[in-house]
Design a binder for these strands. Sequence first.
DNA 1: TTGTCTGCAAAACGTTTGCAGCAAA
DNA 2: TTTGCTGCAAACGTTTTGCAGACAA
Lengths: 146, 146
Amino acid sequence: MTSGEGSPPGAAWQARLRESGHRLTPQRELVLAAVETLGHATPDEVYAEVRTHSSAINLSTVYRTLELLDELGLIHHAHLSDRAPTYHATSGHEHSHLVCRGCRRVISVERTDMESALGPLAARHGFSPDYGHLTVFGTCADCAGG
Amino acid sequence: MTSGEGSPPGAAWQARLRESGHRLTPQRELVLAAVETLGHATPDEVYAEVRTHSSAINLSTVYRTLELLDELGLIHHAHLSDRAPTYHATSGHEHSHLVCRGCRRVISVERTDMESALGPLAARHGFSPDYGHLTVFGTCADCAGG
DNA sequence: TTGTCTGCAAAACGTTTGCAGCAAA
DNA sequence: TTTGCTGCAAACGTTTTGCAGACAA
């Protein structure tokens, strides 16, 4: 439970940090753990989660750390609301999101599924989508009055 | 050239305003014209555009007007950058956007095309996408090194 | 020891709001 | 005349930044 059980095998993220000339700090470990625990979380939510375990972190450090982890590919971010970005762990499979405007529900869609749907259209435009960042807003069946 | 040549025939937007109990003001006319001229524009860009024609408008009025025109369906907004939303006229056909992270180029895709690609997948999840709001980030052929 | 990282506080950024006066209907 | 709309200015929530001290390597 300490680190992600997803695609990075064990503590690969620690190596990833050092490879890229960065340092392994308690704050970075805490932020990564929080993102993995929360699933989809805004910077503020990550901050709050970290504080429940250790009060020793600053909000600006959370921002800087999320940005770094994103650069290193250890986490991804998407825009699940018109306001704040949300971060989630790179847990094995990249996925896209369907977000219901009615109930705020988030449906995750496998990258492969989204790719087979969107790929041909995108290719026709010479375009290569970033599926891990893709968010489709709309209405779910429950909220459509079904 | 005064009003949109797209789907709203002539000055239909004026009727739309009054129908909904709103007033026709110079500011609203200026903002709508600016959005039609610019194509895809942030609130700030709309503000700047309006000011080149008439200095008599306030930024908060631009925000309030964009929100109103969006509610009335006279314009749409999408998120073409991680930062500011962009507004564009409801010119005949609803469309989705492909945005290149490399060159910031925006490719518009007909709603019907996007719907036939994404519709079946969405339906499988009981989900009804908002195609006019949909933005797919990624890389265009030129930036992919092709 | 070295250079990166952190905390702090302030600034920047985009957006929203309360209010008094103005103007469309 | 009657509301709704606008301009102004201040507040707002989120994100970024400069800097000095702390700490991983």
